Structure formats: C-alpha cells, structure tokens
Simulated assay, not measured.
Amino acid sequence: MPRIACLHTIDSNAAVFDEALRMTGLTGVSLHHTVRADLLSSAERAGRLTPEIAAETVAVLRSLSAEVDAVLLTCSTLGPVVEIAAADAPVPVLRVDAALAAEAVKDGGMVAVLCAVETTVEPTRCLFEAAARSTGAEVTVQVVPQAWEAFRAGDLDRYRALIARAARIAREDGATQVALAQASMAGAAALLPEETRPLTSPAVGLTAAVIASRAG
C-alpha cells in the first residue's frame, strides 16, 4: 500500500486531496496530511518565498520522507523548494503542480494559468514556461482579482465563483487550455461545463505521486 505524505499550507486542502483520491479510483493508497499554514502566511507577509521559508519547508519535507513512499507538496508558492528537498530524500518528493503543468501544455496552444495568491505567480510562471519549452505552448499566468480575499474571509462560494468566471473569460479570450494553479481552486471546475472545465492539480498530482512511489 503506497503511503503518500501531503504537506499542505491550507487546512481545507486535506479534504480536497481525500476527495481527489476517491475520484481518481486509485486503490490501496494511504494519505497522511500535514498542515503548515505558517509557511504560506510567512511568504505572503514577505511577498515572496524567502531563503528562510524555503529552508524550513525543505526540513519539513525531508522529515516527512522518513516514513512514507512519496511526499507531495501541495502549495504552489513553496513549490520551488522541491528540487532541493528531492536531491537527497530517501523517497520521491514532488510538487503537485508539476504534473498539472505537464498536462496543461502537452498539446501546445494557448494555456491560461490562474492563481489566487500573488506569491504563487512567479513560481508558477517558471514551472509552466519550463514545461512548455518542449511543446511550443504559449503560457500566460494571472491572478484572479479578489479571489484570495474571499477565501481568507471564508466565503468559498464567492471564491469558486470568481475563479470559474475568470476561467470562462480566459476561454473566451482564446485560451485552448485553462489550468488552476492552486489546489484550493479545484472546486471551481465543477461550476463550468464539462467540455470547458479547467485542469486542476489534486488528481493529477496524486496520480504522479503514486506512480513515483511504485517506481521507487
């Protein structure tokens, strides 16, 4: 039974990934959730991922890797630290949005990537542009206005509605694929018609982690 440790920075993301696991149909997988909201809060205050926050995140990821078969970082803002943590970890360490980026750009075209938090924009842009180099996809990354304020206020209905509206507009503006960069945004996809639903990270990220755990 693959054991996957998920490092979250938002409490509600544990339930998001439990539901994603159910929806994927993956069997015999055990998820272990750790929440470190302070890491994202610190990055928001600093306006970026600082070396100090990165070092603390790496330490947490390495600690989690001691007793599982793979570790999945579910926070896009902290994503760049995975490369460091994975270098000497005993099991695969992945960022949830890496699989999302690969899926979003695989057919080329115009890919619109939506974020809710400003601190996510730059690491997301670097990730998606790197993935797009082999496919020729054109990537744009943007923040959904007012979305994070709604999330922080606990108004999840408004949060999802704002994201769904932004995804719809991106399609109308010519995007051939839309991706929701943050795991907390996944619920917005269900508000849109199935044929135009944006890609979300929880299911594809979990699938990648399970595959990596079995390969290891």
Results as ranks from 00 to 15, higher is better:
113 V>T: 08
80 P>R: 05
83 E>Q: 14
59 A>D: 12
131 A>R: 05
83 E>L: 11
108 G>R: 11
111 V>H: 12
106 K>A: 12
88 D>G: 05
117 V>Q: 03
94 L>V: 05
56 E>C: 02
99 A>Q: 03
72 L>P: 02
129 E>M: 14
45 R>I: 12
112 A>P: 11
133 R>Q: 15
46 A>S: 12
61 L>Y: 02
77 T>D: 07
128 F>Q: 11
90 P>N: 11
54 A>H: 05
65 S>W: 04
60 V>M: 00
80 P>Y: 02
119 T>V: 13
109 G>L: 13
76 S>D: 05
113 V>A: 10
72 L>T: 00
74 T>L: 04
95 R>Y: 08
49 L>Q: 01
69 D>C: 00
96 V>M: 13
55 A>H: 11
119 T>Q: 09
83 E>W: 07
109 G>E: 13
132 A>E: 09
80 P>E: 07
80 P>C: 10
102 A>D: 15
73 L>F: 05
116 A>I: 11
54 A>L: 04
79 G>M: 09
125 R>P: 13
105 V>D: 09
57 T>F: 01
101 A>R: 11
75 C>K: 05
90 P>Q: 10
49 L>E: 00
112 A>I: 10
54 A>Y: 00
96 V>K: 04
90 P>C: 12
125 R>F: 14
67 E>P: 06
45 R>P: 06
83 E>H: 13
90 P>E: 12
133 R>L: 15
93 V>S: 06
72 L>H: 00
60 V>I: 11
52 E>L: 08
49 L>W: 01
45 R>D: 14
116 A>S: 15
77 T>G: 08
82 V>M: 11
50 T>S: 12
126 C>V: 12
58 V>E: 08
90 P>D: 10
107 D>E: 14
59 A>I: 00
107 D>P: 05
54 A>M: 04
128 F>L: 12
72 L>V: 01
114 L>C: 09
113 V>I: 14
103 E>D: 15
79 G>I: 01
78 L>G: 08
64 L>Q: 01
73 L>D: 00
98 A>K: 08
113 V>H: 09
119 T>A: 09
54 A>V: 01
82 V>R: 07
48 R>A: 15
62 R>L: 10
118 E>I: 08
120 T>N: 14
79 G>H: 14
55 A>Y: 04
70 A>G: 03
117 V>E: 02
